[in-house]
């Protein structure tokens, strides 16, 4: 079940991505509608984070391309915001919550220019939206896991984008934070934003998202929640990996074969 939409916010076309010379995503082809809360669901090692990173241009592609708002990423960077996994950074870094939120404004500031009162204001507002205004000056290592996640969100909010890609924003956060975050995401959808979230809890996926992408090394399904979260499709997603696919991946890695004979054309 792969449903395509016209005029998509995000289009992934024939995408193959590998990690350390091992393909982890094969020929993914999908579109995401405007103003949706999209869940990327799949078992461990299914390539969920890889998909997000590939969309954000953080990984080299073996084949295919990604278009956002009908354009390549470089032309629309200020409209797209990325929230990495919380563990991807060292929280012992000498910075306060406000410092991190302020980083969301760096993109629009450009090189050399220093953040000023306006950027400070934007960052404070972003912190308020996630309920972290009282912790603005706290060193980030002194925050709880849920609070650190909120700070990461506030950084993305300060960027004021139209499309948000979030890698596991609910991982290791308490219930209160999770509820607060999902409430915020819903508000964002109401104001016309699209949010793509990597998520691994099936139970909550049902009522969090209106569009679901099921992944397990390949795209299993992409479409409205009630049509994708079906027992048959879930069985296909979680019912073990396609052994042949994993074997071929291993072979490519071990024998040092190229994953594609030609590089994808630069768009």
């Amino acid at each position: 079940m792969i449903q395509h939409v016209t005029d998509p916010v995000l289009e992934v076309h024939d995408l193959t991505v590998s990690y350390q010379r091992k393909p982890v995503l094969w020929d993914v082809d999908l579109t995401v509608p405007k103003q949706a809360l999209v869940g990327v669901i799949g078992p461990n090692g299914a390539g969920k984070s890889t998909l997000i990173k590939a969309i954000m241009g953080l990984l080299p592609l073996n084949s295919g391309y990604v278009e956002l708002f009908g354009k390549p990423l470089d032309e629309v960077r200020e409209k797209v915001s990325y929230v990495p996994q919380r563990e991807s950074v060292d929280w012992d870094f000498p910075a306060s919550a406000l410092d991190v939120a302020m980083m969301g404004t760096y993109g629009s500031l450009g090189l050399f220019r220093r953040p000023g009162a306006k950027q400070r204001q934007l960052a404070m507002e972003a912190l308020e939206k996630v309920g972290m205004q009282d912790f603005a000056h706290r060193q980030i290592s002194q925050l709880s896991g849920g609070q650190q996640q909120r700070v990461f969100l506030s950084r993305a909010l300060a960027q004021d984008a139209d499309l948000y890609l979030m890698d596991e924003p609910f991982a290791g956060v308490d219930i209160a934070t999770e509820t607060a975050i999902i409430e915020l995401l819903r508000q964002m959808r109401e104001t016309g934003k699209t949010v793509v979230v990597v998520h691994h809890d099936l139970q909550s996926a049902q009522d969090y998202f209106d569009w679901i992408i099921l992944l397990n090394m390949r795209l299993v399904a992409s479409g409205p929640t009630d049509e994708t979260l079906t027992p048959a499709l879930l069985e296909k997603t979680y019912g073990g990996r396609l052994t042949e696919l994993s074997r071929v991946s291993e072979l490519l890695h071990k024998k040092n074969f190229p994953i594609r004979e030609t590089k994808p054309p630069r768009k």
């Binding site: 954000m56 241009g57 960077r77 990495p84 993109g107 960027q159």
Partner: peptide
């Protein structure tokens, strides 16, 4: 990674 995504 984030620095790259904002186009630095």
């Amino acid at each position: 990674a984030y620095a790259r995504t904002i186009g630095l």
